[in-house]
C-alpha cells in the first residue's frame, strides 16, 4: 500500500506492531492504542520513533499524556463513509497542537484526500496505487474553500473581508416600475 507523505509518495519507515508482539529497539514502530496505554513507560525508554494506531471509537483525550513522546498518530477509516477520524484529527491537531505525523489509514481513497488534508492529516496510507499517483492533482482541484479548518490555508470568509467589494456579480436585480 503506497504511502503519501507531505504530498509525495514516500518510503514508510515505520513498522506495524500487532497486539503483544515485542517492539524492536532502534526501529520506528507503530503500536496499538491499548499497548501504548498499558506499556507507556517501557515504550518511552526504548530507542526509535514511536507511533500509535488509534481507533475511531476511542476518545482522543486519552492520548494527551503521551503526545509529547509520539512521532506519529495513525487514525482509522474502517471504510470511507465512516467520518469519525476527521473530528479526531482536528482535535489532535488544533486542540492538542500535535506537530508530528498524522496518518490516515484504512480505506483511504482519492475523493477523500482533500477533506483529510484539511482536517490536519499529512500522511496517507492510500488504498489504490492510481490514487496515490494522483494525489497532488486531486488536492489542488479546489483553489478556494469557505470554512477555516485544521490546515492553515485562509478561508473564503477571511479572504473576502481582506479585499474590496466583489469584482464579479452574477445578476443584479432588474429595476422596474
Amino acid at each position: 500500500m503506497p504511502l503519501v507523505r507531505n504530498g509525495a509518495i514516500a518510503e514508510d519507515r515505520f513498522v506495524r506492531i500487532l497486539d503483544d508482539m515485542p517492539v524492536p529497539d532502534g526501529l520506528a514502530a507503530i503500536v496499538p492504542a491499548a499497548r501504548l496505554l498499558a506499556d507507556a513507560g517501557e515504550l518511552a525508554r526504548r530507542n526509535g520513533a514511536l507511533g500509535v494506531l488509534w481507533p475511531n471509537d476511542r476518545n482522543v483525550s486519552e492520548l494527551t499524556p503521551h503526545l509529547d513522546r509520539l512521532a506519529l498518530v495513525a487514525l482509522v477509516f474502517p471504510n470511507f463513509r465512516d467520518g469519525r477520524a476527521y473530528s479526531q484529527a482536528r482535535i489532535v491537531r488544533e486542540r492538542y497542537r500535535f506537530r508530528g505525523e498524522l496518518r490516515a489509514t484504512g480505506q483511504v481513497l482519492r475523493d477523500q484526500f482533500l477533506c483529510m488534508l484539511r482536517a490536519g492529516f499529512d500522511a496517507f496510507e492510500v488504498s489504490k496505487d492510481a490514487d496515490a499517483q494522483a494525489f497532488a492533482a486531486v488536492v489542488s482541484r479546489y483553489s478556494v474553500h469557505y470554512q477555516p479548518a485544521g490546515d492553515s490555508t485562509p478561508s473564503m470568509s477571511m479572504a473576502r473581508l481582506s479585499r474590496a467589494r466583489p469584482a464579479a456579480v452574477l445578476a443584479e436585480m432588474p429595476r422596474q416600475d
Binding site: F80, Y86, H145, Y146, Q147, G150, S157
Partner: peptide, 13 residues
Amino acid sequence: RQHSTLHPEFSYL
C-alpha cells in the same frame, strides 16, 4: 450554507 459546503470534517456524518 457557506460554512457547511464541502466541510472537511462533516462530509461523512
